[in-house]
Design a protein around this nucleic acid. Sequence first.
DNA 1: ACACAAGCACTTGGCGACAAGTTAAGATGA
DNA 2: TCATCTTAACTTGTCGCCAAGTGCTTGTGT
Lengths: 241, 241
Amino acid sequence: MILISADIETQIIDDIMQQIVSKTIEHGEKLPSENELAKKYKVPRMTVRNALTKLEERGYIYSLQGKGRYLKEESTQIQLHLTGKTSFTDKMKEAGYDLKTHNIICEKISFNEQLFQNVNAGKEDNVYKIGRLRYINDEPIAIHYSYVSEKMFPKIEVDGPKIESMFGYYRKLGYKGFTSKKSLLSITFPTSDEQQLLSCKSMVPLIVVESDCIDINTNKVLEHTKILYRSDKFKYDITMD
Amino acid sequence: MILISADIETQIIDDIMQQIVSKTIEHGEKLPSENELAKKYKVPRMTVRNALTKLEERGYIYSLQGKGRYLKEESTQIQLHLTGKTSFTDKMKEAGYDLKTHNIICEKISFNEQLFQNVNAGKEDNVYKIGRLRYINDEPIAIHYSYVSEKMFPKIEVDGPKIESMFGYYRKLGYKGFTSKKSLLSITFPTSDEQQLLSCKSMVPLIVVESDCIDINTNKVLEHTKILYRSDKFKYDITMD
DNA sequence: ACACAAGCACTTGGCGACAAGTTAAGATGA
DNA sequence: TCATCTTAACTTGTCGCCAAGTGCTTGTGT
């Protein structure tokens, strides 16, 4: 197989990444300065700079003006079983993680055909978005959005801002068992708001998992769920069994 | 919830992305020039430029020197059921896609503890990496690596470079049914080689699915599988049933 | 001998001028 | 009238200089 020479910037990224995974550069250690790297690779400083900026945006390194660039401390990847059948809270607690949740938003959303259809809401109905931020070991790692219709949950406007676990809320209202329809996974990048909430850089991919939560008795859709996971904090177990 | 003002560059990205998803900018259409955008957002051209460069690296837009920047043509996302139980080939053919495969590599790999352990190989055994590039509608969309031990498949060195479907190869050797152990999903970025093979930019995330393929009769591990999917070309169905 | 401040050599960050490429309009000549 | 060349006004791309920040070294005064 023959490959034409790729642009040098990408090759520099490859080289540094290789040094990171092979632990030639250790966590917390200072990287060579831009000028040193420019001399090493025989390229203008800008080329090195672009490569380093990309690594920074991907979240591998950070920079301090006047000091240098440093490899971030190692952060363990949490292994998570990706299935809609149990609640996020239960999954994490079972796995023994220190999980905290903050309710960050509860607001009426404007009409959106696809979304309203998912929760069996008509154009005149009200649909609320309830957002929680999930922390593990006090690090934000996921944003969890639930979309519910006011028709189904009349008190949602006042209850919404206090909810941390939707499953808990449903149980209190008498719902006993839950299941889910199709679960879809895709990849996106954080908006500026999401970057701040998750305290991550703009090029850290987010894994989006969307599904509907269904009451096992009535078979009615209770909510549409959308979870944004920081992809650098997880390894997902998608074993089918 | 109060958010401190994020850096302007990120906000510009948000704004342009919003215009893309709301179809204010149409596919193939020319974006405003860097100077126009700089005037619009009241920022130096460099800031706009950085924002646009990021969008380009994520694969949403492309640029032509002297002409301008353009929104890419729409590319449909293929929906794929992510499970290890059926072969990649079968999955795609079932779904009715025009799938082509090219064998791109077959080589003996150097010792790697984790990997060798996966295929039950000792330090003295030979393990081969067989790589195929998957095309759908003549677009490269995934790189599929299979790791097999020579101990298990003595003729792999000569057969390897011709194999397009490992399952087919195993069936020819008398293996009848396959299953898989744990499947793990994570996110990575393409190396320069992978960028060329998949003809994608450096910031297009790749979905990595790793698992072991097991002979259903003997329960022996046949291969360790690692598939790199272009995340922008797929929506993954991870429904459990 | 010690405290402190100035300076220097290094780091990363940002901006502006210019280079390179494209297009279209207009001048020029047959 | 038409073909062709020149020019100018746009586009994106690149490079280098200087600003800003850090910390060590050195010199000076008490």
